[in-house]
């Protein structure tokens, strides 16, 4: 690991590592509201079946997860728990924000108790729009995340550098 973290890994090796990481994402599901059921359909329904994308749902703990899907309405009361969850995950870690509520507050944009977007608390890699997004939309989000993983420099992720979007 020292080689990767230092950023001196040769390019073919990086590509190989990224390929491996891309197709073995442990996905932790943080289901909060309606979107949780659509996420449940992605995981549990034979019609959508997320495992064919190389995503493994139901890790025993966030400490084993690479990806967390925040699906649903984030409230101010929930924020400390989400922050704690995120801090427990090992680097490199990825976040998908699923649904309008987690993206920006959604239909509760003027509520007194809803956080206007989970990105105020933790960095988000992929936003999946919709209220709730269809299961296919979440699958698309996962595919986009996999594209990002295959093209990235693992060293930056390992160091926990802030994410810069071009």
């Amino acid at each position: 690991m020292g080689l990767v973290a230092s950023g001196k890994a040769p390019k073919p090796l990086t590509k190989l590592l990224n390929l491996g990481r891309k197709y073995s994402i442990w996905m932790y599901q943080w289901g909060l509201a309606c979107c949780a059921i659509e996420m449940g359909a992605v995981i549990g329904s034979p019609r959508y079946d997320v495992m064919r994308l190389g995503v493994i749902p139901f890790p025993a703990s966030p400490r084993q997860a690479d990806l967390v899907v925040i699906s649903g309405t984030v409230t101010d009361k929930m924020v400390p728990s989400i922050l704690r969850l995120y801090q427990q995950m090992p680097d490199p870690k990825y976040v998908i924000s699923m649904g309008s509520c987690a993206n920006c507050g959604g239909p509760y944009w003027d509520s007194y108790s809803v956080t206007k977007g989970v990105d105020q608390v933790i960095p988000v890699d992929v936003y999946v729009p919709g209220c709730p997004p269809r299961p296919e939309a979440l699958l698309e989000g996962i595919v986009l995340l996999q594209e990002r993983i295959s093209n990235e420099d693992p060293a930056a992720r390992w160091r926990g550098d802030p994410i810069v979007v071009d």
Partner: peptide
């Protein structure tokens, strides 16, 4: 509870 309190009754006012 309250981890999903979205304040429907207040939002319905406006």
């Amino acid at each position: 509870m309250g981890y999903l309190h979205r304040g429907y009754e207040k939002l319905a006012d406006v």
